[in-house]
Design a protein around this nucleic acid. Sequence first.
DNA 1: CTCGGTGCAAAGGGTTTGCATACAT
DNA 2: ATGTATGCAAACCCTTTGCACCGAG
Lengths: 134, 134
Amino acid sequence: MANRPRPARRRTTRQLALVLAAVRAAGTEHPTAEEICRRVRRVLPRVSLGTVYRNLQRLVGDGLVGVAHLGSRVARYDPTPAAHDHFVCRSCGRVEDLVAGPPAAGIRSLHRAGHEVTAHALVLYGRCRDCRSA
Amino acid sequence: MANRPRPARRRTTRQLALVLAAVRAAGTEHPTAEEICRRVRRVLPRVSLGTVYRNLQRLVGDGLVGVAHLGSRVARYDPTPAAHDHFVCRSCGRVEDLVAGPPAAGIRSLHRAGHEVTAHALVLYGRCRDCRSA
DNA sequence: CTCGGTGCAAAGGGTTTGCATACAT
DNA sequence: ATGTATGCAAACCCTTTGCACCGAG
């Protein structure tokens, strides 16, 4: 039988740790890769955006951080890897986390048709309280 | 007072009509701009992708076609402009339309917090019947 | 010492835009 | 005749990748 391709032992680097820390430090801000890069550079001024992307990919793959595409073109990273939904304010852009509400009706009708639903992405859009009162 | 910027009278061109026709002809396939461009070129071989994009933007703005970002980076266009959700098969990529199921729970909790929800985007992922039986 | 991670810079894919020309009005 | 829409190509934005060097193991 073929040698299975060796599992490639992974190293933990300063950059990796700092990227993870940056995602977590951003709290609820759902930072972009660029924002994360800026933050990491405060400590390690020479990190490249490429490295940030590579480490983000790895962290997402390992389930340590989440990614969300919230309607714009850029990916936003999220310290909460568990499935959850988002609310985006169309005036100020703020992003709020929501507990994942499995959309029961849609799932039921798909199941009836023989399809299997394994995940979902839900983004709610509107105006946040602050923008409404302004 | 300043002259208000004149409302720019819009022209209807062969290209515009063909782009709309192409979106509609694709039926339930949710074509990409590139696919639409290919179809339009069967009639008008010299249309540019740029023109297709400009016309798609206009049609979306006018509410004649819908756009959906279904997890990948490419925008997919939809002859059904009314709000509705989507199911994407992770094996074969097929896209199924769903009647819009307003995610009541999420909206309620946001409303309680003072936010106003005006729209949503829901994508369900899974395996379609055909891929499950294969 | 190894070989996976890094920095850099260039390539890539999707979409937008500047410009001279074509054409709907 | 007027000026919007077009075709072309270059620019854009976000992300990925190739390569030589660096440094964790």
